[in-house]
């Protein structure tokens, strides 16, 4: 029982950041129909940004987190304007190839800049874990969960309660008609890509200090993001949120009760099962966003 509780706590902490990754990717795919292979590199960018700012430049850890999020958004906006805007109207395969190219370039730049040795981030949180009964959890991990929940709530608010969010939903449902309402589709696309990228960078910035930052860390994050989005249904934010927690839960139980070597395989097991039995995702009613 104690072990199961521990797994549940770990699920929550991992699930929060997975949900951020999934929401970011599903927003971009839902609104722009772009399969974003750079998503994992934005995650790596977040982790390295925190490392560079707090470890090399001596910035406050919390400030570094905020800057990593903002930097991720700026990088996302740049990718959208430079790579995707000229490709508007191109078919999805062409765009996909361009994004795969961007992914490879970004990963190699990380390798070139930081080298292959993993980097650790030291945080201001105490090393001694918080122990409640049979469950122990580090303060850093609790902080990660709280921040992830705050960002998820902020994203919900943005999509459902702001004018930008309304325009994003309208564009998702019918881009031509949204344009007739005066929505600048280009701006919505840039904002969407920036927000999705910012969420990935935030996930990396939060998990980087928990684990380590290394150049290929984005690969697994990207694959897991795809698993979450497939699980939750393309374009569904609620689906991505729940999907993130489900993936974390399955990974935890798989690692705990089957074999820890299979932890990362669980995502693929999920993709295969969902595609076999419920290809529109677990939570997709019709295509929707919000």
């Amino acid at each position: 029982m104690g072990q199961f509780l521990q797994h549940l706590v770990n699920t929550l902490i991992l699930g929060g950041t997975y949900a951020l990754l999934g929401i970011g990717l599903t927003l971009i795919f839902g609104i722009m129909r772009v399969v974003n292979f750079t998503h994992g590199e934005l995650y790596a960018f977040g982790a390295y940004a925190v490392f560079a700012l707090s470890m090399l430049l001596g910035a406050n850890f919390f400030l570094a987190l905020v800057l990593a999020l903002l930097g991720g958004m700026a990088l996302g906006a740049l990718i959208e304007i430079v790579l995707l805007r000229p490709m508007r109207g191109a078919d999805i395969d062409t765009t996909m190839l361009v994004m795969i190219g961007a992914w490879i370039i970004m990963q190699n730049l990380e390798m070139l800049t930081w080298g292959g040795v993993a980097k650790a981030v030291v945080t201001p949180f105490p090393e001694v874990p918080l122990v409640i009964g049979s469950v122990s959890v580090s303060y850093l991990r609790v902080f990660v969960l709280v921040m992830a929940l705050v960002l998820i709530a902020a994203t919900y608010f943005l999509i459902n309660r702001t004018k930008l969010g309304k325009a994003m939903r309208a564009t998702f449902q019918d881009a031509d008609t949204a344009a007739l309402m005066g929505v600048s589709i280009n701006r919505i696309y840039t904002a969407t890509f920036a927000i999705g990228s910012g969420l990935a960078a935030a996930a990396g910035a939060l998990l980087g200090p928990v684990f380590l930052a290394f150049p290929t860390m984005g690969d697994l994050a990207a694959l897991k993001s795809f698993a979450i989005v497939i699980l939750g249904g393309l374009g569904s934010i609620t689906g991505a949120t729940i999907g993130g927690f489900i993936l974390a839960f399955v990974e935890e139980l798989g690692a705990g009760y089957v074999s820890s070597g299979y932890r990362d395989a669980m995502g693929f097991v999920i993709i295969i099962l969902v595609l076999m039995f419920r290809p529109t995702g677990l939570f997709a009613r019709a295509e929707r966003i919000g």
């Binding site: 309208a170 449902q173 031509d176 309402m181 929707r288 966003i289």
Partner: peptide, 30 residues
């Protein structure tokens, strides 16, 4: 649209997952 030309497209094209109010608000987007 900002010059004053509105277009009610073929097939009505309301935003199906938005409420009636939100659809009207979209009409006043600018």
């Amino acid at each position: 649209l900002s010059l004053g030309i509105a277009h009610a497209p073929e097939g009505r094209r309301v935003f199906p997952q938005m409420t009636v109010e939100e659809n009207l608000e979209m009409g006043a987007y600018l």
